[in-house]
Design a binder for these strands. Sequence first.
DNA 1: GTCTATATTCGGATAGAC
DNA 2: GTCTATCCGAATATAGAC
Lengths: 181, 181
Amino acid sequence: MREDTRARIQQIALRLFTEQGYEATSLREIAEELGVTKAALYYHFKTKDDIVASLVDLRVAELEELVEWARSRPKTAEMRRELLERYADRLKESRYLEITRFMERNQTAMRDHPKLSKMRETMLTLSREMSPQDATPAERISHSLALFALHAGKWLTVQGDLTEEEIDKATREVALRLLEF
Amino acid sequence: MREDTRARIQQIALRLFTEQGYEATSLREIAEELGVTKAALYYHFKTKDDIVASLVDLRVAELEELVEWARSRPKTAEMRRELLERYADRLKESRYLEITRFMERNQTAMRDHPKLSKMRETMLTLSREMSPQDATPAERISHSLALFALHAGKWLTVQGDLTEEEIDKATREVALRLLEF
DNA sequence: GTCTATATTCGGATAGAC
DNA sequence: GTCTATCCGAATATAGAC
C-alpha cells in the first residue's frame, strides 16, 4: 500500500491534467482523489506548476535516452529504422504515452514554461538524428514526419473498425516509408 | 473603422485563446483589448463558451465546403490529389490556420463541447473521401496521415533554416507520397 | 506529513441605468 | 450597445496546530 506520496501525486495529476486539462484541474480534485487535503500537496510541491515541471522532466529524460542511444551508434539507415522502432515502442508504454498526450493537449498551458524549451530542443536533436547529413530539405521533413506519424496514429483510433494492433502496425509501416524517402 | 463588434470579438478572442489558451484567457482581457468592459461582451455572446462555439462553427463550415466539393466530383485519384491541395491551400489562409491551431492547442478545454463531435464527424467524413472504397487499412491510414502531415508541417518551422515556402512545398510533396501509398 | 482554518485574488455572470 | 456596480463561487496559496 502506501508508497511514495510524491509519485502518487504525479500519477493522479498526470491523469487528470490529460483528461480534463491543466487549468481545469484543481489541486482540490487531486487532493480528493489522493484522500488528503490541498494543504498536504503543498508539502510535496511548492506550486501547481512544480507538479507539471516534474512531469516534463520525466519525458525529457526518456527522449534524452533515445538521443544517447542514437549517438552511441553508427549513423546508418539501419540505425534510423531502429531508432524509429524504439520511439514507437516507447509510445506504447502507458506512462510515456500519457505524458506525451498531456503535453499535446496542454500546449497553451505550458506555453512559456521554461521546461518546454528544453523539451523542444531535445525533440529537435532527436529529429536531426533521423536524417543523414546530406539530406535535402524535403527528405528531412519526411524523416521528421515519420516521428509525428507515430503520434498521429494514436489519434486515429476513431478511424473505422480497426483494432489498436492494426493501427499500430499500419502506422509503423507508413512511418518507415517516410524514413525511406 | 468600426465594423461589426461581434466579428472583432471573435478575432481578438481567437488570437488570445490560441496564444495563451482558452482557460487562461479571461473575458476581461478580451474586453480590454477591444476597449470596452466585460459586460459589453455579454451583449454579443451569452457566455464565454458561446464565443468558442462560434469559432468552431467557422471551421466546420470550411470543412463541409471541402466535403461538398469532393462529393461533386468523380472519385478518382486525381480528385484526391486536388482535394489534398485544396486542404493545404486552406491551411495557408490565416484565419483557417488560426482556428486550426486554436483547436489543436486547446483540446482538453474543448473536451466535451458539443460542437466538437460535429467537427470530428466532418473531419472523419473528409478523410474517408481520401481513400477509394477498396483501400486496405494501411492505405487508409496513410491517406489520412496525408492530411495530418500538412498540419505537422506547420509545427516544423523550428526545423533549421528553412523558409516557410520551402517547408510548405516539401510537406505537400510528402503528403502526396502518402496519398499514393 | 497532514490537518484546520483563512487570506487573497480573480474568474464568469447579472441587474439595471444611460 | 455599452456602462457601473455587484454577486457569487472557486482557485491558489499560506499560517500555524498536531
